[in-house]
Simulated scan of single mutants.
Amino acid sequence: MVTPGGLVVLTDRRIATGPLVSVVRAAIRGGAEWVVLRERDLPYAERAALAEQLRSLLPPGRLIVAGPDPLGGNAVHLAEADPLPVSGVELVGRSAHGVPRLSTEDYVTLSPVFLTKTKPGYGPALSPEGAAALAGKVPWLALGGIDTPSRAAACVAAGARGVAVLGAVMRAPDPERAAGELAEALSASPAAAR
Score class of each variant (00 low, 15 high):
187 S>W: 14
142 A>D: 00
41 D>W: 10
89 V>Y: 10
145 G>T: 05
129 E>R: 06
78 L>K: 13
136 G>Y: 00
193 A>T: 15
48 A>M: 12
106 D>M: 15
153 A>N: 08
155 C>Q: 01
17 T>P: 12
120 P>E: 04
95 S>I: 03
80 E>V: 09
96 A>V: 03
33 E>N: 00
120 P>M: 12
1 M>R: 13
123 G>H: 13
1 M>L: 09
108 V>N: 00
4 P>C: 02
15 I>D: 01
8 V>E: 12
66 A>K: 14
135 A>M: 01
184 E>I: 09
113 V>F: 03
49 A>K: 07
113 V>Y: 04
91 L>P: 12
19 P>A: 12
84 L>Q: 03
139 P>L: 08
82 D>C: 04
128 P>W: 06
170 M>F: 08
136 G>I: 00
13 R>C: 04
170 M>P: 10
138 V>K: 04
48 A>E: 06
88 G>S: 09
99 V>G: 12
60 P>L: 04
85 P>M: 06
146 I>K: 05
10 L>M: 08
37 L>G: 01
108 V>L: 00
127 S>T: 07
64 I>W: 08
181 E>R: 05
44 Y>P: 11
182 L>V: 14
44 Y>W: 13
27 A>I: 09
84 L>M: 13
39 E>T: 14
60 P>Y: 05
45 A>P: 03
39 E>V: 03
138 V>P: 00
139 P>R: 07
50 L>M: 05
190 P>D: 11
56 S>G: 14
